[in-house]
Simulated scan of single mutants.
Amino acid sequence: MQKLTAEQYKKYVGLSKDFAFEKLESHEETAFRKNIFPYISEEIIDELKSSADDTKKQIADLILKAGACYSVVKALPFIKVKITSFGLEKYQQEKMKNADWWDVRDIGLSLVKTADEALSDALTEIAKNPSLKSRCDFFTKYSFALIPTPEEFNSVYNINKSMDVYMNLVSLMKRIWFALADQLKDCAAAELSTDEDLLFLLKDAIVYSSLGKALKLSQFTFITSGVVIQYEELPWQKSLILSDSQKNNLAEEFRATASDAIGGILKHLKNDPEKFPCYKPVTLENVRKIIEKKSGLYL
């Protein structure tokens, strides 16, 4: 199991030297087991830490930073109170006032964001190394190939590089791709990804279509700055949540953007048959010609 030192907590989180670091031990185990090890194994982390390669050391640093921040977030409720045989007691200080709940919330959300960004950036760097990527559980078990990392999704629509948000969106993205593939006939994702413009449109189509579906699901919370998921260790979490009317407007925007992207994809494939022989547009036979007149369209 990964064990972080007091010096590492000072470096990654900014905890003071007089902090009671033993309060983090059990939460550290939870943080790595739940938030890190499902995606990056302990074996790979140890390999990165002991490597002489600077890039690998930097990846290890990002992973440990994520683990440290997640650990403190999970420990926050226990830092505020202590459990005794007589119940729960609040820690008191003689010269300093205990932080208000909104201050605790804000530092917790800040730590979650820092952890998410660090973990996402580590995965982005791992993806650049074929050997590491082929052994990384995130890419072999969870990642969606066309939009393979939280950062990739974040480049289209803001999810704060959140692993939780990305993981909840993966199944939606796969469903969208299966439906879209039906329109693309025999064109495979790898074949379409060779064209930069087409890949841009594909990402737009998948991202905005999946977000349109996510709007109807309870696990996603849409706020003015993007998409989040309620963090279970922060039950007091409150954000600038969109109203129903704002969500309806956003749904229309998502649908329109996705529809435009899909139309652009089909047009792109149709206009370049030599490059994409995989695409066979449907042609309807024995259909009466449409006649255009000033008063309208007629068969």
Rank of each mutant, 00 (worst) to 15 (best):
G263A: 15
I45Q: 14
A115L: 09
G263L: 09
V73M: 09
E252T: 15
T5I: 09
L242G: 03
M163P: 07
G67Y: 11
G226P: 04
V282R: 07
L64S: 08
S71A: 15
D272N: 09
I59T: 03
F21K: 01
F178N: 13
Q93V: 06
W177S: 00
E152N: 06
K10P: 14
F19V: 13
Q246Y: 04
F276L: 05
T140G: 11
G108N: 04
Y208Q: 07
I147L: 06
P235S: 14
L266D: 02
K133N: 00
I40H: 03
F32S: 05
E47Q: 12
G108S: 09
L146Q: 07
S143E: 07
G87Q: 00
A179P: 02
I290T: 15
N286W: 14
L297G: 08
N158L: 12
F144Y: 14
K82H: 13
E7K: 06
Q93L: 09
S193M: 07
G264V: 00
E285Y: 04
L109G: 03
L217G: 06
S110R: 12
G264I: 08
D106K: 05
S239T: 13
V207F: 04
F144A: 08
F86E: 13
A20N: 13
Q93C: 14
D46L: 04
T224Y: 01
W177A: 05
N154W: 06
K17W: 10
L4M: 03
W236E: 15
L76G: 05
D182Y: 07
G14Y: 05
D61K: 06
L297N: 10
A60P: 09
L297V: 02
E43T: 14
V104G: 07
E285M: 09
E274F: 11
L234W: 08
D197W: 11
Q230V: 07
S51Q: 14
L201P: 00
P273W: 00
F138W: 00
T55D: 08
K289R: 12
L198Q: 05
E43N: 10
E47L: 11
